[in-house]
Write a protein that binds this DNA or RNA. Structure first.
Lengths: 226, 226
DNA sequence: GTCTATAGTCGGATAGAC
DNA sequence: GTCTATCCGACTATAGAC
């Protein structure tokens, strides 16, 4: 009747540790998070961290691998759809501009949803922490998703605005678009009291997407074509 | 010939500790920063922290008091000038809108400069850390500066856009403006490689202010009045 | 007001039984 | 694969000489 040591148990332990680690690391940062508390939250023994991940650092990197794969599941289909749409349309510049704006709205809506998900608060904190002060774990993120998403969005902004894709102006404007979404997470301490928002629920996300669309259309006007 | 213990020495020690603490806390966060390293960087003894600030936490809060007073020196004159200008002009709605846009540009330019200063990298990191995950020290910041600056900017956005100052839409748009500036600091890990910017020098800040102005004017068009 | 020295605490890693 | 027990290093805070 004793617990059998089968290979499945290891997987469950790893999974529990990663989930717990996302919360604890996200809340307190790497240094302030003790392996004891992570193990406790996961309901496993503290020594398991060393066994499965080599140590605290290894667990941290495994967490980012997990986050990237989760983000990819949500974002890659959207990105591929955007790329396909853009390549298909070979109409006038005005038509392409229209298309690019719609795709920007699509991509950023997905982004707002992704960052606003109920279960996201833990890993969003982690990602933003790394953004601000990259450690080696950041490359897992950048190479795995952020970099290619940013290149896609830059291209869309280029089409929508007429700015040269390689120009600093285009890239600055692209980054500014990103900022308009990130600010609600990254400057939470300021925006949250200012808006009387305790959390980002469905109502808030809808308003955000709506206002983002308005700001987006204003920043890159569609012109007067069909 | 021995060193005389005069009251001035204490001030110098406090000052050195605060400056060192801004750098060390900013770089590594509260928990990862040891009082030993701070004391070492300041060129004073580790026990001095306990003597002058009561402990690590006390030093941390003193740092934020210092940061707020520095920010106030830079921003309060700009804010007062903006408030005065706005109250003086009692022209048409279109004129007030013009004025509000110019003032928004003024305030955000000061903001971009403030955050982009050479000596700012240390405390900017600290401020953004607190933004993301407020500790009690955050109130020193919010009550001392951020809150009232945000109210001012919200009012300006309201005048410039015609949105009701108290509406969520107006506050969301205001926050988005803030995000367009903050993103270059807060998502440094992504924007920096994307723009090939190692640091924010004078050239970069100029481009930022220029592009911000363009985006600002686009988001809140001046209309067709005089 | 500043220093040295140390007490007391906590965390990461790991050995070794099961 | 999991557990208990423990080692060892690093840290904060503080007592006490100067």
């Amino acid at each position: 009747m004793s617990v059998v040591n089968n290979p499945k148990r290891g997987d469950a332990t790893r999974e529990a540790l990663i989930q717990a680690a996302i919360d604890v690391f996200g809340h307190d940062g790497f240094d302030a998070s003790s392996t004891r508390r992570i193990a406790n939250a996961a309901g496993v023994n503290q020594a398991a961290i060393g066994y499965h991940f080599g140590g605290k650092q290894g667990l941290y990197e495994a967490v980012f691998g997990h986050i990237v794969s989760q983000m990819q599941i949500r974002m890659v289909p959207v990105a591929e759809r955007a790329i396909a749409s853009l390549e298909l349309i070979q109409g006038s510049a005005a038509e392409r501009r229209h298309m690019a704006l719609d795709l920007l709205d699509l991509v950023f809506s997905a982004f707002i949803d992704l960052f606003g998900e109920e279960s996201a608060t833990g890993w969003v904190r982690l990602v933003l922490r790394e953004q601000q002060d990259p450690t080696p774990a950041f490359h897992i993120l950048y190479d795995g998703l952020m970099g290619r998403m940013l290149r896609l969005v830059t291209h869309l902004v280029s089409v929508a605005s007429g700015l040269d894709e390689a120009s600093e102006a285009c890239r600055v404007r692209t980054s500014m678009l990103l900022g308009q979404v990130l600010v609600f997470h990254v400057a939470r301490g300021t925006t949250s009291p200012h808006l009387n928002w305790n959390s980002l629920g469905q109502d808030q996300l809808t308003l955000l997407k709506q206002q983002f669309r308005i700001a987006l259309e204003a920043q890159f006007p569609r012109g007067v074509s069909t």
